[in-house]
Design a binder for these strands. Structure first.
Lengths: 233, 233
DNA sequence: TGCGCCAGGATTGTCAACCATCTTAGGATT
DNA sequence: AATCCTAAGATGGTTGACAATCCTGGCGCA
């Protein structure tokens, strides 16, 4: 819309900072780049197939090429981007089939194991932190704030898996989740925000019983039901 | 213990090149670094817990810190290393439990899908390339060359999954496999080289029938049986 | 003696400028 | 019209310098 002659409305949601972050800590620029790009890709501001040029991004984000390169590698591991030698990075799509036959099953494997494991060791502090996310999700649902609700969803699961203390499991989950999120943002999710809040409320309650037979069935249903095509058609 | 003041016999298997590759093309240093480190870690030349210092590695490998940083990120995605901000990278271990409950099930999910998918589209060239790996594996078995046999094993599966043409599936497989490999190198593998060759010969034959009911049971057994604790104890 | 605090040293994170290498899209030549 | 060639665009890698952070060992103080 407004776009001055030079740039063509960059899909990045950030105001290019004047090379020095005025809001406080200048450290951790790399993480900032990852988050900005991930958000933009998942929100669909970059279409699958779009090319990501290092120099352009570094200029838009107010950093040097170094952090941008690292960010692109990170996104590659999260399956949002693919990069070929000397040819640069392009945004990836996710197929229906891979989501259903690979990503969701992997998510199930990971979460089943993590939840069962976390059950045994979670402290009251852990439960409190998770309850906080449920509360945030409720607020988001009230305001119809989808991004905020999804963020709370992410944190909920991340907290439980972190609590399970299994390094690889957590790392794998973090590399799987962004693809699933991108998929649902692109093709619409199946259940309502209210249902999502209810699911997590129940999950938290079940976790507090520390009884696997309470938790696991809920978890299966929660994850499996997220797949469109399972429920209407 | 012993430790001479300066260097303690670096676990890297390469002769530090004189900063300029005399053998020809200087390009592609990054990949070289990844492979050197991955090999060293999997072979156990770095123990879990060992710290990997960028400046040390770059000196030993004859590159600048840039490629080393990228390599460390790559290894982080492969689960061989974990790095914390401003604290550097340490070599990771893999627990029995995670291998059995997470890594192997994921591998099963990935390969079941890939093999079934590849079945439909593989060409004669694909089969030839795979047959070549079986042949290499036979030779390796004859010479009791475990690393070479494992390399052929890797290539065999990589080729099939690549043939399936599923981007995410392939990417996930490549991030799972190194951990499993490291696990077996550390704790010993269960079956003999002969059995391994036989498994793959059968798998290839089954693939050529293009009949899922031939392939999948074999695959299932091949992967599951690789888990120690399933067979003696 | 035991404890907290602080200064340095070690290491990672970022920047900037630069060159080498590869890809690709045009344009010129035949 | 097909092919070769060149030059521009982009990535991969290098160097050297700083800034930011973590860690450790020694110091003073109780």
């Amino acid at each position: 819309m407004i776009a001055k002659p030079k740039s063509v409305a960059s899909p990045l949601a950030v105001a290019p900072p004047p090379a020095v972050d005025p809001a406080g800590k200048p450290g951790r620029r790399g993480q900032h780049v990852v988050e900005a790009l991930r958000t933009s890709i998942i929100a669909g501001r970059y279409e699958p197939g779009a090319r990501l040029i290092e120099s352009t991004l570094s200029a838009e984000l107010g950093t040097s090429r170094g952090p941008v390169r690292e960010a692109l590698r990170q996104l590659e591991n999260e399956g949002l981007v693919m990069s070929l030698p000397y040819r640069g990075a392009v945004v990836l799509g996710v197929s229906d089939e891979e989501v259903q036959h690979v990503l969701i099953p992997i998510r199930l494997t990971v979460e089943r194991y993590s939840f069962a494991k976390a059950l045994e060791t979670m402290t009251n502090d852990d439960f409190a932190e998770i309850a906080k996310q449920v509360w945030l999700m409720e607020q988001a649902a009230k305001n119809d704030d989808l991004p905020q609700a999804v963020e709370a969803d992410l944190q909920f699961h991340d907290l439980v898996i972190t609590a399970s203390g299994q390094t690889h499991t957590l790392q794998i989950w973090r590399s799987i989740w962004p693809r699933i999120r991108a998929y649902f943002f692109r093709y619409g999710r199946s259940s309502s925000l209210e249902q999502m809040v209810e699911d997590h409320r129940e999950l938290l309650a079940a976790l507090q019983t520390r009884d696997p037979t309470q938790v696991l069935p809920l978890l299966e249903r929660h994850i499996a039901v997220t797949v469109p095509g399972q429920e209407g058609t």
